[in-house]
Structures are given as structure tokens and as C-alpha cells.
């Protein structure tokens, strides 16, 4: 399988020749809604100052 084919699958384009079946569209929409609500939940637990936290996360090298 070529990389171009993979790219197309990962990023749906408007000119996709075969439109997905309605059931599939509904299921994808449900998945998107679930992900959105999960992202909202994650928002609530992320460190509040991302920049400061990331800047301060400094480790010593190990093995």
C-alpha cells in the first residue's frame, strides 16, 4: 500500500468518490461527540499554566 493512499484515509477529502454510508456517518459523529466530551474532561485536569509547567519539567539524563 502506498503512503499516499494512507494519507488519504487519515485525512478525508471532500472529493472522496464513495460517500460513507449513513450509519457510518452517524457512528463517526457519535465518536466525535464522545471525543469532544472526553477532551473537556481532560481540560479539567491539565496543569493550569502549561507554559510554566513545561518549562519547569527538567530531568537529569539516565540510562
Amino acid at each position: 500500500m502506498s503512503g499516499q493512499e494512507q494519507q488519504r484515509r487519515n485525512t478525508p477529502e471532500p472529493e472522496e468518490p464513495t460517500p460513507p454510508a449513513p450509519a457510518q456517518v452517524a457512528s463517526e459523529a457519535k465518536k466525535d461527540a464522545e471525543l469532544d466530551s472526553f477532551l473537556d474532561e481532560i481540560d479539567g485536569v491539565l496543569e493550569t499554566n502549561a507554559q510554566e509547567f513545561v518549562h519547569g519539567f527538567v530531568q537529569k539524563g539516565g540510562q
Binding site: F57, G61, G62
Partner: peptide
Amino acid sequence: DGKGASYG
């Protein structure tokens, strides 16, 4: 750590 350090 994203800044150069790695640990195993």
C-alpha cells in the same frame, strides 16, 4: 523531558 535529557 523534551529538553535533551532521556532516561531508560
